[in-house]
Amino acid sequence: MLDVTDPDSIQAALARFGRLDCVVNNAGAGLFSVFESTPMATVRALFETNVFGMMQVTQAALPILGAQGGGRLIAISSGAGIVPEPLLSVYSATKFAVEGFTESLRYEAAARGVSVKLVEPGLVRGTNFLARTAESAQAVPVPAGYEPLVRQVMGAFEQEGPYRLATAQTVAEAVVAAAEDDSTQLRYLVGEDVENSVRMRRETSEKDYNDWALARVGGQ
């Protein structure tokens, strides 16, 4: 069992394999919460797993991959790291950090022959990650005045949308595709919802994106 927040655990896990061909940074935690009432200890804990843990694994793996003459580093990001969602401000912040860190790292890692990739799933229903995220929301109180927004967002989250969503299987397939891809492609989207979000974020004007983003949550 690898604990990404424990350097000794990371070193022990890497030593078990002897050789590394591909490292997948898949450890992560989620959080639904109103930021105003989210304890900073909770914020820091999420960053420890989603950002600093990922960085520690990456920093430990790079010398091994470099000494071998190359390899692959894959980070699992999220659609929330591209288009933020209500009640996911802290989680989105961690995934924006993963996005920025990984895109910058690709240039450094290339000097050692190491290829860096980002897999970006949209919503994936029916996973332990989603269940634990819902459980974590119960520990953060909802301040007065936010109840209508929380009810609206949670209700929308539970509804079936118009898009074909990612599954654990399709995410795994994207990871394999990234691991086997020798091209310079950085990002691998998984799910029609995140594909649409990326299209709106990156291929439309700021005004069109803003109108679309607000309309999704009933904004004006």
Rank of each mutant, 00 (worst) to 15 (best):
P86W: 04
L2P: 03
S197N: 11
T38W: 15
A75N: 10
M200L: 12
V4N: 11
R106D: 00
D211Q: 14
Q159C: 05
Q68F: 06
V194W: 14
Q220V: 12
V150N: 01
I74K: 06
Q159A: 12
N25M: 08
A80K: 02
R216M: 14
S77C: 12
S33Y: 08
P84C: 13
T102W: 08
G122Y: 12
E36R: 05
G122R: 01
K95G: 06
N196V: 13
A166N: 04
A137V: 02
T58F: 04
A174R: 11
G66T: 02
L149K: 02
T42F: 15
E203T: 00
V83E: 15
K207V: 13
G79F: 15
E206D: 10
E36N: 08
K95W: 08
A29H: 08
D21H: 02
A29V: 13
V119P: 03
S183T: 07
S37G: 14
R132P: 10
A139F: 03
V124W: 03
I64C: 03
Y91W: 12
L118S: 01
C22F: 10
D193P: 05
A111R: 15
E195Y: 03
T58W: 05
F32T: 09
N196L: 15
T127H: 06
R151M: 09
V153Y: 11
E192N: 08
P148H: 07
Q159G: 04
L118M: 05
N50S: 04
V4P: 06
A41P: 03
E48V: 03
A12F: 05
D208P: 03
A166E: 02
N50H: 01
V171I: 11
V198W: 15
F96P: 08
M200T: 01
A29M: 14
A109T: 00
Y163C: 15
A61R: 01
I74Q: 07
L214K: 13
V194D: 11
G219S: 04
D3P: 09
V150L: 07
P121N: 03
A174N: 11
Y188V: 00
P141V: 15
Y163M: 15
R72L: 07
S104Q: 01
Y107D: 01
A12I: 00
E120I: 12
A110E: 14
A213P: 07
A134P: 02
Y146C: 13
G218F: 04
A13Y: 11
G145M: 15
L123M: 09
N210D: 13
